[in-house]
Design a protein around this nucleic acid. Structure first.
Length: 417
RNA sequence: GUGGGUGUAGCUCAGUAGGUAGAGCACCAGGUUGUGGCCCUGGAUGCCGCGGGUUCAAGUCCCGUCACUCACCCCA
């Protein structure tokens, strides 16, 4: 037997209905807020991700599915979507027509990590991006959308965490101060963090090793080093969230794993997913468009982990599984070919009709209809053909009526819909 | 990449001191000459994850390996 690839998964009927419902809810909300769908490829040149996400990040360093294609060019299965959206935005000069663009996209991402609860090697994200707006209100809009969404999807046990990572103006100063602090307390840090001091000191902030957490309680906070512009920006975000009565936690240790983030970052965290607490995350990436060769245009966006979301939504999958409207139980060959004709005609009319193609007793066909959850059963046998009328049974009330074979499809439609 | 747990029927799992494979649910048929859910009776189904070793004999013990899973790490 050939098994699926490690860390990949099948989403089977019975589960997929919930996904459809989630996608429908998210996409319609985003459409209502003026976001347009964009579909981007699943593979890109490796360079795109190296330049946007950052060479020194874990994603680029050890998690990407990268390989040479047949002509030797390095290509990568996308580990995230923002880079591609921005690439597309620049390539097609989408800024030329309209200075502000709002996109959303949905699809699989790939990261070769060790699989775990809420973490797969192929996982699904819904991304929303606002490109061309400098105002922090764009960030607030995104957070507002996420909160609305989780409420519409009956997700409980979520918290909004926000932080500011500063800009090229103030971040270097903080980085230097933090590095000094870390260097002076090396003996209290785990071995990984000692390496991080030089590679990416901000990462030490969200290390989960207890000793590191302890050592970091006195660490300098980025929020104390923000330049006036960033500081004002962050205040605006907080004030607007308060105005919307959205509860949030300022978490000055919230760090993103992608280098392109600036200023406001946010994460929606849940307590119900074990170690994978983030169901959605995002933030501002003001330098990214320029870094990828476009004009100096700001951007902000979020990604929702659909796999994780589907596990914590309060929606009940059973509510979305569609049962047949009618089951046609035929007895004998002649009845069966008639029933088959009707079944197809009903399907064209939007009536979900099912039947069995084998030769089975009426009892077993009734049982099958019951199992499928069919609301009605149409019984047809030699007697019915002779009399020119078939029996329509309502499975809930057990009431049976005789209906003429003539204009059968119309008759059924008016009786059961 | 590193650790822990688990792999037996479609699903959930039992399998006691090594002695040659079980239950419940689901499925099929019958009890009811052409009527579902409840009940009763009967039936089909397993490379006991894979490979090797110990033994007269291995689902059971040993070694290896793979997969799943949880955690570290990282993130959505």
């Amino acid at each position: 037997m050939i098994q699926l690839i490690r860390g990949f998964k099948d989403i089977l009927p019975g589960e997929v209905e919930l996904w459809q419902q989630i996608e429908k809810t998210v996409c319609s909300l985003l459409e209502d807020f003026g976001f347009k769908e964009i579909r981007i490829p699943i593979m890109e040149r490796t360079e795109l991700f190296a330049r946007s996400i950052g060479e020194d990040t874990d994603i680029v360093e050890k998690e990407m599915y990268t390989f040479p294609d047949r002509k030797g060019e390095l290509i990568t299965l996308r580990p995230e979507a923002t880079a591609s959206v921005v690439r597309s935005y620049i390539q097609h000069k989408l800024y030329a027509k309209d200075p502000v663009r709002k996109f959303y996209t949905i699809g699989p991402m790939f990261r070769r990590e060790r699989p775990q609860k809420g973490r797969y090697r192929q996982f699904y994200q819904i991304n929303a991006e606002i490109i061309g707006v400098d105002s922090p209100l764009a960030d607030v809009e995104l957070i507002f959308l996420l909160v609305t969404l989780f409420s519409r999807l009956s997700v409980s046990d979520v918290e909004v965490h926000i932080n500011s990572l500063g800009c090229p103006e103030c971040r270097p100063k903080f980085k230097a101060t933090l590095t000094d602090f870390l260097t002076s307390s090396t003996e209290n840090l785990c071995s990984d963090c000692v390496i991080r001091i030089y590679r990416n000191p901000l990462r030490v902030l969200d290390c989960k090793v207890p000793a590191c957490r302890e050592a970091m309680t006195d660490a300098p906070s980025i929020l104390d080093y923000l330049c006036p512009v960033c500081s004002q920006d962050f205040e605006t975000v907080k004030t607007a969230l308060e105005a919307f009565k959205i509860p949030f936690t300022v978490d000055n240790q919230l760090v993103r794993g992608l280098d392109y983030y600036t200023r406001t970052t946010f994460e929606i965290q849940t307590g119900s997913l074990g170690a994978q607490s983030a169901v959605a995350g995002g933030g501002r990436y003001d330098g990214l468009v320029k870094a990828l060769g476009g004009p100096d245009i700001p951007g902000t966006g979020f990604a929702i982990g659909v796999d994780r979301l589907s596990e914590i939504t309060g929606l009940n999958n059973a509510d979305y599984i569609k049962a047949p409207d009618i089951f046609l139980a035929a007895l004998g060959e002649k009845s069966q070919s008639l029933a088959f004709k009707w079944k197809c005609a009903l399907g064209l009319e939007g009536v979900k009709a099912e039947m069995d193609f084998g030769v089975r007793s009426l009892k077993s066909q009734m049982k099958q209809a019951d199992r499928l959850g069919a609301k009605h059963v149409l019984i047809i046998g030699d007697n019915e053909i002779k009399e020119g009328a078939v029996i329509l049974r309502d499975m809930t009330t057990k009431a049976q009526v005789s209906i003429p074979i003539e204009d059968i499809v119309e008759n059924i439609k008016t009786k059961i819909l």
